[in-house]
Design a protein around this nucleic acid. Structure first.
Length: 740
DNA sequence: TCATAGATTATTTTT
DNA sequence: TAATCTATGA
C-alpha cells in the first residue's frame, strides 16, 4: 500500500489505526487523543486505499451532533460526494431501515416515533385504565422497565417473571403498552432499534443485502453501547471481519442508562482477530492535568488499561478552593473568571463551569447575573421538547396519522374546546372495549350518537378541525402548512393568552418552529438524501423532530461563560474548567455510593470533567451547602484525595479579602433593624452585630464575631466558635441568634 | 372546567 | 427551596 497524504500529521498509533487492514479493530482512544480525526481518516483511507465506495460504509454514532460533525469533517477531508454514505445515530439508521422496509417490519406506512415523554403519558394512561396501583407500580418505573427490556432485546413474553407478582404486572403492562403502540402505529426509541434488529434477523434476504452492502462498519463511543445495540451490530457484521469501533472505557458514564462498558471487552472476545490500538497521546491538556486524571482513574478496577501522556509542559497546578458555603464558592468562581479575563487574556467562552447536578446551576447563575457576567447554560429543555412545540407537533402528527393516540390525547382539549376529562374517559372506554384507537372511537361515537349535547358537538368540531387542516393544507409548503396549523388550531392564541413572559416566549418558539420548517424544506436536515417537498416533507420533518431534540442553541450573542453538567461536557474541551461542588454526597452523588460499580462510574465522570481542561483546572467545594431548602455540611470529595498533592494548590481567598475590608463600614450597629430574634429571616434586615458580639448558630453553637466584610444580605462575618474554630458566615443565610 | 392549596420530592440524559 | 404533582372545591 502506497504512502498516502492521509497519514500526514498523524502519530504512529493514529496512523496504525487509520491504515490497518479493513478487519476488526478496537481503538481505545483516550480523552483528547484525536479520536474523531482517526475515525474520519479511517473512512477516507478505506475509500482511498481499499476502493470502498461511500455506499459501502456505515458509520454509527450516538448523538446527532456527533454524526453531523462526522459528516462535515469527512466532506472537508474528502471532497467527494458522501450522499450515499450512511452516517447516523443508531436510532436514525434503524428508523431509516424501518421506513424503507415498513412492510417487512410489520409497521404501518406512516408510523410515528414517540419520545419518552409521550411514552410516559401512555404508560400513565394504561395504568389508570387498568386500575393498577401506581404506588406499587409507579409510572416511571414501568416506563423504565419497558425501555430496559427493549434495551436488553426482550419482548414481553421473553421476560422471566419467576412467578413474581410484581414482575408479572410489569410484564403485563409491557404487553398492554406494546399493544397500544401497535394500534396507533407508534414506535418508541427502544422499539426503533429492537424492531430493526428483528427485521434484519427475521428477513434473511434483507440481512444479506445489507451485509453485502456495508463492507465496513464504524462505531463511535463504543463504551456507550447497550446490549441491544451490541446485538444489532453483531447481527449486521455476521461472520465478516468488518468493524472499526472506537471507545474509551474510562469515559463510560451512561451505565445507569443501560450502556454496557463490558461491550468493549466483549468485542475483543467475540469479534474475530480484533486488533487493539491504543491512542494515549493527549493533545489537549497540560501534563499536570493529565497526571491528575491518570492518578484519579487508576483507582478504578477492571480497566482496559491506558495511560495518557503529553509532550506539552507541566502547566499550572490544579487549584482547589474550599468555599465556606455554596454562595462563596460561586463567588470565587465568578471572581476568578473575571481575573482570568481581565488579567490573563482569556475570553469568557474559554471558560466552562461544570457541575454534577443541574440544581447547582442556580446559585452559580445568580452570582454571575449579580456580577454582570454573561453565561450560557447548555442542556436543559430542548427545542422539540417544549410544551408549545410538542402541541404543534401533535396536530401535525394527527394530520399525518389519525390513529396516533399519543398525539390525540395531547391536543384533544388544547386549546380548551370543551372536551373534558369525562368525555375523554368515555372515548377511552370505548376504544378499550372495541380495541380501537381514540380516533376510531371518536368517529364511532359520533356515528351512533353515543355522545350527547355539548360533548358531541365539541368532539365533532375537533375531528372536523383535524380533517379540515389536512384538506386545507394540501399542496402547501411545509412552513406554510405549519403556520396554518398553528393559526387555525388556535394554538397561537392559546399560548398568547398565557400570562407573564412565558406566553411571549412560547409564541417566539412557535415562530421558530415555522423557521425550522422552512430551513428543513430547503435541505438543512440530518439525512440529506431523502429530499421531499411540500406536505411530503411533513413525515420526514416529524421524524427529525422526534429523533433530534434540536439543541442548536449555541454560538450567537456575546462571549459567554459556558455552564453545563459533567455529563453534557463529554466530548468538549475548554482552556479553563471549573468543576463545582466536588463534595461527598454530591460528587460522588449519594445515590451512587451504595454500589461500587456506580461509584466507579462517578469517578469516570470526574475523569471526564478533569480531562475537559486544557490549561487551567479549578476544583471547588463548599463546606456548607444549601440543598433542598436546608443547609448541609459537606465533606470534600474523596476524589480530591485521589489526586497527587504535588499537583494541587489550595487557593485561600478568605484571608486576603477580609483583611483590607474595613470592619467599621459593616459594623451593623448603624443598621435600622433592631436586635435579631430567633427564627427571623436574615433578609428582613441585618442583625445587630458588631465585633465582639456573642452569637449562637444552630449547628456551630456559640461564638464571638471577630471580623466582618461586605454589606447587606451578602455581608459576611467571621465568627470564632467554641470547638468549631473560625468560620465565615453569610448574614443572609446563617441563622444567627444574637446573644449580646 | 378550572384554580388553587397542600403534598411530595428532589442525579446524570440521547434517542 | 422550588418545582411539580394531586386532591379538592367553586
Amino acid at each position: 500500500m502506497s504512502e498516502s497524504p492521509l497519514l500526514d500529521h498523524l502519530n504512529t498509533h493514529q496512523r496504525e489505526a487509520v491504515s490497518a487492514p479493513p478487519g476488526n479493530m478496537l481503538v481505545l482512544a483516550g480523552a483528547g487523543s484525536g479520536k474523531t480525526r482517526v475515525l474520519v481518516h479511517r473512512i477516507a483511507w478505506l475509500m482511498d486505499q481499499h476502493q470502498m465506495s461511500p455506499y459501502a460504509i456505515l458509520s454509527v454514532t450516538f448523538t446527532n451532533k456527533a454524526s453531523r460533525e462526522m459528516r462535515t469533517r469527512l466532506e472537508a477531508l474528502n471532497g467527494a460526494s458522501l450522499r450515499h454514505m450512511w452516517v447516523g445515530t443508531f436510532h436514525s439508521i434503524s428508523h431509516r431501515l424501518l421506513r424503507t422496509h415498513w412492510q417487512e417490519a410489520r409497521l404501518p406506512e406512516h408510523f410515528q416515533i414517540i419520545d419518552s415523554d409521550d411514552q410516559l403519558r401512555m404508560v400513565k394512561r394504561l395504568l389508570k385504565q387498568h386500575n393498577v396501583d401506581d404506588e406499587r407500580w409507579p409510572p416511571k418505573q414501568v416506563q423504565y422497565f419497558i425501555s430496559g427490556c427493549k434495551e436488553e432485546g426482550l419482548r414481553a413474553h421473553q421476560v422471566q417473571t419467576h412467578g413474581d407478582a410484581y414482575m408479572g404486572k410489569m410484564v403485563e403492562m409491557y404487553e398492554l403498552y406494546q399493544l397500544a403502540c401497535e394500534r396507533g402505529g407508534l414506535v418508541d426509541f427502544g422499539e426503533l432499534l429492537l424492531r430493526s434488529l428483528e427485521l434484519l434477523r427475521d428477513t434473511p434476504p434483507l440481512l444479506n443485502h445489507y451485509r453485502e452492502r456495508f463492507a465496513h462498519i464504524l462505531v463511535d463511543e463504543f463504551q456507550d453501547t447497550n446490549t441491544l445495540q451490541y446485538a444489532w451490530l453483531k447481527l449486521l457484521a455476521g461472520n465478516r471481519e468488518c468493524m472499526t469501533v472506537v471507545g474509551d472505557d474510562d469515559q463510560s458514564i451512561y451505565g445507569w442508562r443501560g450502556a454496557r462498558v463490558e461491550n468493549i471487552q466483549r468485542f475483543t472476545d467475540e469479534f474475530a482477530n480484533t486488533r487493539v490500538v491504543r491512542l494515549e497521546q493527549n493533545y489537549r491538556s497540560s501534563s499536570a492535568i493529565l497526571e491528575a486524571a491518570n492518578a484519579l482513574i487508576s483507582n478504578n478496577g477492571g480497566r482496559m488499561g491506558k495511560n495518557l501522556w503529553t509532550d506539552s509542559g507541566r502547566g499550572e497546578r490544579i487549584r482547589i478552593y474550599a468555599g465556606f458555603n455554596d454562595i462563596d464558592e460561586s463567588r470565587f468562581i465568578a471572581d476568578t473568571i473575571r481575573e482570568l479575563v481581565n488579567e490573563h487574556g482569556y475570553s469568557r467562552d474559554d471558560v466552562a463551569i461544570l457541575y454534577r447536578s443541574n440544581a447547582q446551576s442556580r446559585v452559580l447563575e445568580e452570582t454571575l447575573i449579580r456580577q454582570g457576567m454573561p453565561y450560557r447554560i447548555y442542556g436543559g429543555q430542548r427545542f422539540y421538547e417544549r410544551l408549545e412545540i410538542k402541541n404543534a407537533l401533535a396536530y401535525l402528527r394527527l394530520m399525518n396519522n389519525r390513529e396516533d393516540d399519543a398525539a390525540l390525547e395531547r391536543v384533544i382539549n388544547v386549546p380548551a374546546r370543551g372536551i373534558g376529562m369525562r368525555t375523554v374517559e368515555q372515548l377511552r372506554e370505548r376504544a378499550r372495549y372495541g380495541n380501537l384507537t381514540m380516533w376510531q372511537a371518536m368517529s364511532d361515537a359520533a356515528a351512533d350518537g353515543a355522545l350527547k349535547g355539548r360533548a358531541a358537538t365539541a368532539v365533532r368540531a375537533f375531528s372536523d378541525l383535524i380533517d379540515g387542516l389536512d384538506n386545507d393544507t394540501a399542496g402547501m409548503a411545509l412552513h406554510e402548512l405549519v403556520e396554518h396549523v398553528i393559526h387555525v388550531s388556535a394554538l397561537r392564541e392559546h399560548h398568547a393568552a398565557e400570562k407573564g413572559e412565558k406566553g411571549q416566549a412560547r409564541l417566539e418558539n412557535l415562530a421558530e418552529l415555522v423557521n425550522a420548517c422552512r430551513a428543513f424544506s430547503q435541505g438543512e436536515r440530518m439525512d440529506p438524501n431523502a429530499v421531499s417537498e411540500g406536505a411530503e416533507a411533513l413525515e420526514p420533518f416529524l421524524a427529525e423532530a422526534a429523533l433530534d431534540a434540536g439543541d442548536h442553541e449555541a454560538a450567537e450573542g456575546e462571549e459567554c461563560v459556558q455552564m453545563m453538567t459533567l455529563h453534557s461536557a463529554k466530548g468538549l474541551e475548554f482552556p479553563v474548567v471549573f468543576v463545582a461542588g466536588v463534595e461527598e454526597g454530591l460528587f460522588p452523588h449519594k445515590m451512587s455510593l451504595e454500589e461500587p460499580g456506580r461509584l466507579e462510574e462517578e469517578r469516570r465522570l470526574c475523569y471526564v470533567g478533569v480531562t475537559r481542561a486544557m490549561q487551567r483546572l479549578y476544583l471547588t467545594y463548599a463546606e456548607l451547602r444549601r440543598m433542598h431548602g436546608k443547609e448541609t455540611f459537606q465533606r470534600p470529595s474523596r476524589f480530591l484525595r485521589e489526586l497527587p498533592e504535588e499537583l494541587l494548590e489550595e487557593v485561600r481567598l478568605r484571608g486576603q479579602i477580609s483583611r483590607p475590608v474595613s470592619t467599621q463600614r459593616t459594623t451593623p450597629n448603624r443598621r435600622p433593624s433592631g436586635p435579631r430574634q430567633e427564627g427571623v429571616d436574615a433578609s428582613d434586615g441585618m442583625p445587630a452585630l458588631s465585633l465582639g458580639s456573642m452569637v449562637r448558630h444552630p449547628l456551630f453553637g456559640e461564638g464571638v464575631v471577630i471580623n466582618a466584610e461586605g454589606q447587606g444580605e451578602r455581608a459576611r462575618v467571621q465568627i470564632s466558635f467554641e470547638g468549631e474554630g473560625d468560620k465565615w458566615l453569610v448574614l443572609g443565610f446563617a441563622k444567627l441568634e444574637v446573644l449580646s
